[in-house]
Simulated assay, not measured.
Amino acid sequence: MTKIEPKVSLVGAGPGSEDLITVRGLRVLQMADVVLYDALVSKELLAEVPPSVPKIYVGKRCSQHSFTQDDINILIVEHAFKYGHVVRLKGGDPFVFGRAHEEIAYVESFGISVSVVPGISSALAVPSGQGIPMTRRGVSSSFWVMTATKRDGSFSEDLRLAAKSSTTMVILMGVRKLMEIVKEVSRYRGSQTPIAVIQNGTMRNEQCTVATLEGIQELSNGIDVTKPGIIVIGNVVAEHPSFFEDEVQRVLHSSL
């Protein structure tokens, strides 16, 4: 019998669309003996894995049954000893709010080698796909990627600090608190500051809503807050092809 040699690869799946994984990431994925994948990994990407390879969902989603991080850590180690090469497939990049460091520390404590394949972060790729730059000369010289809230549900200090500056704000995992975020940011930025909410980024069913901080409330009913998305706030959002057209239509409609 062939001796099983346990090893783990943390692979970034990219921002959503199956063809936005890196060449190395796809190659490592196709060499897996077992795949443990997250909620935002597409079915089309999983289809690139041979049918004989077990594919196990270990995603964590709000209001749905999910694995704890401790559960996932244990599963990775158990499957490495059972199958050999575990590919831990994570949406975006493993180190952007992916808790990769916790998985690496746990796996290595069992003497199992770990390698990391970086992925394209949705924080950059999703706005870019909509024609929204993170920086632009004379408009924004920096961008700040953050989560909206801390573990206890309160706003992070980073959100407030970023709102007080002129940086482009890229907020992950914040759609459920969209209007609360808008209210908080509006304390420090003008009501005409552009904002974009992008859901299912880079996918065929991608949806992008652009407005101002003042105007987004009228459009919020059309945003499904049960689905994850990315919020971009800053003057660079005005670069979106439909920003001015949508705003003009909203103002005209509100004046009728």
Rank of each mutant, 00 (worst) to 15 (best):
I231K: 01
M31P: 06
V23N: 03
K90G: 05
T202L: 00
A196Y: 03
E180R: 13
S154I: 07
L45K: 00
G215Q: 06
E180G: 13
A148T: 03
S63D: 10
G215A: 12
E245H: 13
P228S: 08
P51M: 01
T226S: 14
G92C: 00
I198M: 04
A162E: 09
V86D: 02
F243K: 09
S242C: 14
T147L: 12
E157Q: 14
G153Y: 08
I195R: 01
V182E: 00
K60F: 06
L252N: 11
G12S: 05
V35T: 03
M31L: 13
S191G: 01
S109G: 12
I216M: 13
Q69K: 08
Y83I: 06
E48K: 14
L124M: 06
F67P: 01
S186N: 05
T202P: 03
A13Y: 02
L36N: 03
Q249W: 11
T193Q: 02
I195P: 01
L26C: 13
K164P: 14
G12A: 07
I198Y: 00
P133E: 01
E245R: 15
L252F: 11
E5H: 15
R24I: 03
L29C: 01
V170G: 05
M169V: 04
M134R: 09
V182S: 00
L46F: 10
M173T: 00
I120Q: 10
P51S: 09
M31H: 13
E218N: 11
T135E: 04
F97C: 09
A105Y: 11
L172R: 06
I230T: 10
G16L: 01
K3W: 11
V210S: 05
S122E: 07
I21C: 12
D93I: 04
S242I: 14
G174C: 09
V107R: 02
V34W: 01
G84F: 03
G98R: 04
V49G: 06
D33L: 08
A105W: 07
E157V: 14
V35M: 00
I56Q: 10
S9Q: 03
T2K: 14
L161I: 14
K150W: 10
R204A: 07
L10G: 07
M134W: 09
G234V: 08
S42W: 04
I223H: 06
A148G: 07
P118G: 07
Q64L: 08
S122L: 03
D246E: 11
L40E: 05
N73A: 09
V49M: 00
V28K: 04
